[in-house]
């Protein structure tokens, strides 16, 4: 009988002690900013295109962290992006919705400088300040900074902006994943 009581007492004491430690830790080591948002934001492609329906990558990251948004709403991030998010958040991979925006090859905007009237609307729309120019001056896009978000297309009054796919060049050419003629080890054996 006393053994039982002793065990109970020890367990209770342990519970109290550990609870106190945990409580102390949660107060003492409280993390102010939510690092999860940063981590998610780091995975997102930073196109700031708003295709996820959030006004930028960070708001979307915040929404994901808060559990308000799905991980499959970032077309520029592609399937890879979803995989990374799934891994980061420990959730299942989810393909893009049928009707939703689908990933497309990376493009950059190009201003037809013949047509540009220098209205600055695209400059105001560009989320990453990748458009140079001032009022009544012809504008041009810094291709290396363009994220391909397409946000400048709609505001252009003269429709002089179009998206040009970034083709394969010697600079960004990649070796293919080696294809072995025979299915030696199926990577995803059922």
């Amino acid at each position: 009988m006393s053994g039982l009581l002793l065990a109970l007492a020890i367990m209770a004491a342990l519970a109290v002690l550990l609870g106190a430690v945990l409580g102390f830790a949660s107060v003492k080591f409280k993390v102010e900013a939510d690092p999860l948002v940063d981590k998610i934001d780091a995975v997102l492609p930073q196109t700031q295109c708003g295709q996820c329906s959030y006004p930028g990558c960070r708001p979307y990251a915040t929404a994901i962290a808060a559990g308000e948004a799905d991980i499959n709403r970032c077309p520029p991030g592609g399937e890879d992006g979803i995989h990374k998010l799934a891994e980061l958040l420990g959730v299942d991979y989810k393909p893009f919705d049928e009707g939703a925006a689908q990933p497309k090859p990376k493009s950059v905007a190009l201003i037809n400088e013949e047509l540009c009237i220098g209205c600055t609307l695209c400059i105001q729309a560009c989320p990453v300040d990748a458009i140079l120019g001032s009022a009544k001056q012809m504008h041009t896009i810094i291709a290396s900074e363009c994220t391909g978000c397409e946000l400048c297309i709609a505001p252009c009054p003269v429709d002089c902006i179009r998206m040009v796919p970034v083709g394969t060049t010697l600079k960004n050419w990649k070796w293919d994943y080696p294809v072995i003629p025979i299915a030696s080890i199926p990577t995803k054996a059922a």
Partner: peptide, 11 residues
């Protein structure tokens, strides 16, 4: 992406 983030944040 990092550059885009910086530029966006600065904007």
């Amino acid at each position: 992406a990092d550059r885009a983030r910086t530029r966006h944040e600065f904007r």
